[in-house]
Computed example of a mutant assay.
Amino acid sequence: MQAQLIALDWGTTSLRAYLLGPAGHVQNMRSLACGIMQLPTTARHIAGQPCIDGFELAFDAACGDWLDANPSIPVIACGMVGSAQGWREAPYRTTPSSLKALSTALQTVRSVRGVDVHIVPGVIQHSTLPNVMRGEETQVLGVMHSQPNLNDCLIGLPGSHSKWVQVQDGCLVHFDTFMTGELYAAACEHTILGRTQQQSGQFDGAAFERGVQVALSPDGQLGPLSTLFSARTLGLTGQLTPTQQPDYVSGLLIGHEVSALSRVVRQRRGDKPLPAIILIGNAQLCQRYQRALRACGFADVSLAEQATEQGLWHLAKAAGLLHHTQTEG
């Protein structure tokens, strides 16, 4: 089966490369710790010439052999590679944003191999408190094409900066951001809470659920700046073991996030029931969010698969990058 597209999900800390066949079927995939903030530094020859550029080195490491085997294959990339600190800046497109709007705004950088890399722009939401995303818009597009009837759904993308996205008639129209993952890492690694914690490698569901319930309780109305301290006091009083504390903090912060989300969603929807939720991301993290969302009253929560690959495939198709192929899907 002939390869038809190289698709790159290039973020801050990692680079995931996909070799796609007809209809976006994944033929091969590899992941490298070569995000834009930790690019390779060891010089080597690429296409017969010495190279020291970190982006070129990472690109060649990710898919050089695929390019050798498929000389005319198109390449598309999303994520922080298109930021001001990336390989080539792809300016934000404003909401509402559609497949057409994003596919007609790709920015191109030519590699030393002579291969054009087409970079997807991010999305900006102008408001009193502006909001931005890079990479998540591609995942949302992937879900939109696999599940077209999304007007009454909310798409969640848990992570360092969790996104909650509303789509309407094929357009990304609104999104909210929560710095839950980054706050969790900071609290556990750089505050006094981490002094009494011990990572076990095993998920403690009861400790996580306890954190969620505290966030949803009357005590939780004081907010995470107050309830976070309970991770220390429950440990000091013997009510949480060192290995339970990390999952308790995780449940606490995710609980505060979904509690705030449910409150805002209810305000926006009035008498309408809560929407179905589609989650995109790491399966283990999404399972934590499923637990917290159901505790908040979101009964219909599902996980999407291959959202990034499908989003990049459809963007490439809409941009005309697959014109050389016979079967586009």
Rank of each mutant, 00 (worst) to 15 (best):
Y184N: 02
G201Y: 04
L154T: 00
Q202D: 01
W164N: 06
D176G: 12
Q197A: 13
G205M: 07
V173F: 11
Y184S: 02
P148V: 10
S162G: 06
E209S: 13
G135M: 02
H190G: 01
Q147M: 14
Y184F: 15
L172W: 03
L157H: 09
F178E: 08
S162D: 06
T196K: 11
R210P: 00
L183K: 01
Q213R: 15
M179I: 10
L193S: 04
G159H: 10
F178G: 07
D169S: 15
V173P: 03
N151L: 12
F175L: 09
G135Y: 05
G156L: 15
I155A: 08
V167E: 04
R134F: 03
Q198M: 14
Q213E: 13
Q197V: 05
T191M: 09
S160C: 07
E136T: 03
F208P: 00
S200W: 00
C188H: 07
T138V: 08
G181V: 05
G142M: 08
D152C: 13
R195Y: 13
A206C: 06
L172Y: 05
V143H: 06
H174D: 15
F203S: 01
T191Q: 09
L154W: 00
S162Q: 06
T138Q: 10
G205C: 09
T191C: 10
A185Y: 00
S162F: 03
T138L: 07
G159W: 08
T138P: 07
N151R: 03
F178H: 12
H145D: 09
G205W: 00
Q199P: 01
Q202H: 08
S200R: 00
Q197R: 06
G211T: 07
V214C: 05
R210H: 13
G201W: 01
M179T: 05
M133R: 09
T196F: 11
D169R: 14
Q166S: 15
E136G: 03
F178R: 12
A206R: 01
H145A: 13
C171E: 14
T196N: 10
D152L: 14
V165D: 08
D176T: 14
T138Y: 09
N151M: 11
S146N: 13
Q139C: 03
L157R: 12
F178D: 09
L141C: 04
S146D: 13
Q213M: 13
T138C: 12
N149P: 04
A187L: 14
T196Q: 12
L141I: 11
V143S: 09
R210Q: 14
K163Q: 04
E209R: 12
C153Q: 09
H190D: 11
L172V: 13
M133P: 00
E209F: 02
T177D: 06
G211L: 03
H174T: 11
W164C: 10
L141S: 03
E189S: 14
L172N: 03
H174W: 13
Q198D: 09
V212Q: 04
G194R: 01
D204Q: 05
V140K: 11
I155S: 05
L157W: 09
S160Y: 04
S200I: 02
